[in-house]
Design a protein around this nucleic acid. Structure first.
Length: 365
DNA sequence: GATGCGTGGCT
DNA sequence: TAGCCAAGCAT
């Protein structure tokens, strides 16, 4: 087979074209034997789960500035970590990140486990992330399989089986290419190739270092692989978000339940999100609808929210949530949906002030 | 194995 | 525009 030859061509390409990323060790340091910091590799890999490099950069910088090592992160308050994660999405990652940091600090002497199996046992570290840390930070010949690798090997071997059923077969194919020498660079090379050349649509086969090894290219079907089984359509759900300001400027917020959608994050009280939600305002007040609502799309449904506004007196007692003093309220600490709600609440009747996130209620069916 | 879980960019 | 997609994990 030409597996070894393929791997060599990939590493040769990587040595010339590796992307410069804040969590990577540069070529000179790598040649000098320097390994990347497992903490930074772990943090970046968790942030990169289902998330683009462009979105991760500023968050990675903020986290490593606030918490330069795993001990510092383990000692951070929950709310500070959730706030720093606000806007990045998939908030279970932030909860597991903190749980993992505390487990490493408490149970492993502040040092990440040296093996893939040890890493895999930590919260928020699944098969991909364990393999990535083991390969990149610890030079273990772990088989790293993410969406990029699946796509690259599906094309290299012209594997026609649709995902997710093809996952085990693609993992076996990826294992054939994984070298014992420089497995971390190999893994990063596969992912760089998938992100920049072997892209989902319109792959740049003309400049691909593996073009001569690619079965799909020979068959003219690279752009059609990997096949994917059809996904169900997203339903649309409705709801009302309630924005209450007290006379002193305090804002009524509640912390969402620790699990589930936007779990553990702050937000405005509201109805449930359903086809026919049950209106239950969190406080007695004179409510008026904001002139614009909010549209937001989650992974598995579209959401249209009406925004209802009220001002209340200094002694008003809410049935849900708690008033946050104006000085402590930061919209940036909210998940994006709730930031859109806040933006909509600011629009009042001034059309010129409408943000991109706010749309006229009339457009919400 | 299927489902739930965010967000922003791209076509 | 509406859908697709991105360095997945937990249950």
């Amino acid at each position: 087979m030409r597996d070894a030859e393929t791997g060599a061509a990939l590493l040769a390409w990587y040595d010339r074209h590796a992307r410069v990323l804040p969590w990577r060790v540069g070529p000179a340091d790598r040649a000098a034997g320097k390994r990347p910091d497992p903490y930074r590799v772990w943090l970046s890999e968790v942030m990169l789960q289902q998330t683009t490099v462009a979105a991760v950069r500023s968050y990675f910088h903020r986290f490593t500035t606030l918490w330069p090592d795993v001990a510092a992160l383990a000692a951070a308050p929950d709310a500070a970590v959730m706030e720093a994660w606000a806007g990045l999405g998939y908030y279970a990652r932030a909860r597991n990140l903190l749980a993992c940091a505390r487990a490493v600090a408490a149970d492993h002497g502040g040092v990440f486990p040296a093996t893939e199996a040890g890493l895999r046992a930590l919260p928020g570290i699944g098969p991909y992330t364990a393999a990535a840390i083991a390969a990149i930070a610890q030079d273990e010949p772990a088989v790293v399989v993410d969406g990029n690798v699946e796509r690259v090997v599906a094309r290299l071997f012209a594997h026609p089986e649709p995902l997710p059923r093809a996952k085990p077969a693609l993992t076996a194919l990826a294992a054939r290419l994984t070298p014992r020498h420089r497995p971390g660079d190999h893994a990063q090379a596969m992912m760089d190739l998938g992100a920049t050349i072997c892209t989902p649509r319109a792959p740049a086969c003309g400049i691909c270092p593996l073009a001569g090894f690619c079965a799909a290219r020979v068959q003219g079907m690279a752009a059609d692989l990997p096949r994917k089984s059809a996904k169900p359509a997203k339903p649309t759900r409705q709801g009302i978000a309630y924005v209450v300001r007290r006379a002193d400027g305090a804002v009524l917020l509640e912390t969402r339940p620790p699990k589930g959608l936007l779990g553990g994050m702050p937000g405005f009280p509201g109805t449930d999100w359903a086809e026919a939600p049950d209106p239950a305002p969190p406080i007695a007040a004179h409510w008026r609808p904001a002139p614009v609502g909010v549209r937001h799309t989650f992974t598995h449904f579209h959401l249209h929210l009406a925004v209802h506004l009220a001002k209340v007196g200094a002694t008003a007692a809410p049935a849900r949530g708690a008033f946050v003093p104006a000085a402590d309220f930061r919209p940036a600490a909210l998940p994006t949906l709730m930031r859109k709600v806040w933006d909509a609440a600011q629009v009042e009747l001034d059309d010129a002030a409408q943000s991109d996130a706010a749309v006229p209620i009339a457009r919400n069916p």
